[in-house]
């Protein structure tokens, strides 16, 4: 699903050029659950942003389902992203002015789906995430765990092929964190590909494969033994 070859990303300020990603090669197969780990500033988020088509690489090639993404215009990236990708953030990034229902509905609106279909999909995903009883609440009225469940609902409501999670448990206590990880695992088992950036060893153990990044380069890749054991 994801083929990354010789990818480079540099940021330029007036005087200094910083190389955030240096010659990264990474393939992610359909149905995989990959965790990207590494210390702060190693380039994890930059890589995730590029995979999520929020950012363009400076050099190299990134193919998403055989579409070359590098060099696409913003409008084209938006089109490719719609419905194919779901995002889960550490800080949830729900829109405070919209209710739970409306937040989850938003990606469907951008897909120009009609109202009854939207309603059916939103309610189904909310039921599944056990948050349907809160549909009329605003994000500020929910606990962190509930907010992240809403965010995951929003990420999956379009049935995306790929979910990108950026430290999804970073702002949660361990109980809620485990719950979120279980949800992601469940989605993965249903066939959704997941790429997750994390600091947490616990979380990384949910993945099939761990990619370690250091100073913009992939230093190790390891199959997850725990997973292997489970599989």
């Amino acid at each position: 699903m994801i083929k990354i070859q010789n990818l480079k990303k540099s940021f330029r300020t007036e005087e200094v050029e910083t190389l955030a990603l240096n010659d990264v090669n990474l393939n992610v197969a359909s149905g995989e659950f990959v965790a990207i780990m590494g210390p702060s500033g190693c380039g994890k988020s930059t890589l995730l942003n590029i995979i999520g088509m929020l950012d363009n690489p400076t050099e190299g090639s990134y193919k998403f389902s055989d579409h070359e993404v590098g060099g696409l215009k913003e409008r084209q990236r938006t089109e490719l992203r719609k419905g194919n990708l779901g995002f889960v953030f550490q800080s949830f990034n729900l829109i405070d002015e919209l209710t739970v229902y409306e937040n989850v509905e938003l990606p469907l609106i951008y897909l120009k789906m009609n109202k009854s279909e939207r309603k059916q999909k939103v309610m189904a995903v909310l039921e599944r995430m056990k948050i349907a009883h809160r549909e009329k609440h605003f994000p500020q009225q929910l606990s962190g765990g509930q907010q992240q469940r809403v965010a995951i609902s929003r990420a999956v409501v379009t049935n995306p092929k790929l979910i990108l999670a950026d430290e999804p448990t970073g702002n949660l206590d361990s109980k809620n964190g485990i719950e979120v990880m279980n949800l992601l695992t469940e989605l993965n088992q249903e066939g959704t590909t997941i790429v997750m950036v994390t600091h947490s060893d616990r979380d990384s153990h949910y993945a099939h494969r761990i990619v370690n990044l250091f100073d913009g380069q992939i230093v190790t890749e390891s199959q997850n033994r725990a997973m292997e054991a489970r599989v």
Partner: peptide, 16 residues
């Protein structure tokens, strides 16, 4: 700004 970011990641384009 956050709202704009969220909307963009959810598939809103500039025109919208």
């Amino acid at each position: 700004a956050k709202e704009v970011g969220v909307r963009k990641t959810l598939g809103s384009n500039k025109t919208e």
